[in-house]
Amino acid sequence: MLAIEQLRSWGLPLEVPGQIIAELSTNAITHGRVPGRDFKLALTVTRETLLIEVTDTRGDRIPEIRDTGRGLVLVEALADRWGVREGPVPSKVVWAELSLTRSLPRRSDIPLGEPAGGC
């Protein structure tokens, strides 16, 4: 995946950001897809933060944590902050931030409990 190679070239951790990228991308493909349109992934790194943004073309479908699926539960558990904002019409942007100044949790450290999540 190009995103993982970009993280590697920046010398950043791979496991936690990779999991968040995978979950947000999967949600964009599964719940935010409009035939003939793709989603966009953007990574922005500063000295203290990695920002992951996934833009899809279903601005009318705002993701929320639900009783089925687990994608957003993982994102919520792994990210320091996450949210949704309007993108260029008809899009939305789902974003997650990770602090680079603290040790990132390993996925195995995150209790999953009951499955939940999805768009």
Rank of each mutant, 00 (worst) to 15 (best):
R70P: 03
E5I: 00
S91W: 07
R47F: 02
D80T: 07
R85M: 08
D67P: 10
E15C: 01
E97T: 12
V73T: 12
D80K: 10
R37Y: 12
W82Q: 12
Q19I: 14
W95H: 08
W10E: 09
T55H: 03
C119N: 15
D109P: 04
G69M: 13
R102A: 09
L100D: 12
L43T: 04
E5R: 10
T49I: 14
V73Y: 03
E23P: 00
E86I: 05
A79M: 01
S108K: 13
E76A: 10
P88W: 08
I21D: 04
I52V: 07
F39N: 09
L14P: 00
T26V: 14
E48S: 14
S91D: 14
D67E: 15
L51F: 13
V73A: 12
R107Y: 11
E97H: 02
E15G: 01
E86C: 08
P13Q: 07
L2A: 01
R81C: 03
T46Y: 03
I21F: 01
V94L: 09
E5W: 00
P13D: 06
V75N: 00
S25T: 14
G71M: 08
G83V: 13
L41T: 04
Q19L: 13
D38W: 13
R107W: 09
I52Q: 02
T30F: 05
T55P: 01
A28Q: 13
T57L: 09
K40G: 09
L41H: 02
L51N: 14
G87E: 15
P13K: 11
I4Y: 01
T49Q: 11
I65L: 14
G18S: 04
E86V: 08
L104Y: 06
T49A: 05
T68R: 15
P17W: 05
W95Q: 10
L24K: 07
P17G: 05
L7D: 01
T46C: 04
A79Y: 00
D56V: 06
K40N: 10
G117A: 09
R102P: 07
L2Y: 00
N27R: 10
P111Y: 06
S103K: 15
L24H: 04
R66H: 12
L100V: 11
I65D: 05
V89P: 14
A28K: 15
G32C: 07
R58K: 06
L74N: 02
C119T: 15
L74R: 05
P17R: 09
A116F: 09
A116T: 11
V45M: 07
E5V: 01
L7Y: 03
E48N: 11
G117C: 05
K92E: 11
L43N: 03
A42V: 15
G36M: 03
H31F: 15
R107I: 15
R47V: 07
I52C: 02
S103E: 15
L43S: 02
K40D: 06
T30D: 13
R70I: 15
L98Y: 03
T46M: 03
K92W: 06
A22R: 10
T55D: 02
G36C: 02
A79P: 00
I29E: 15
D38H: 12
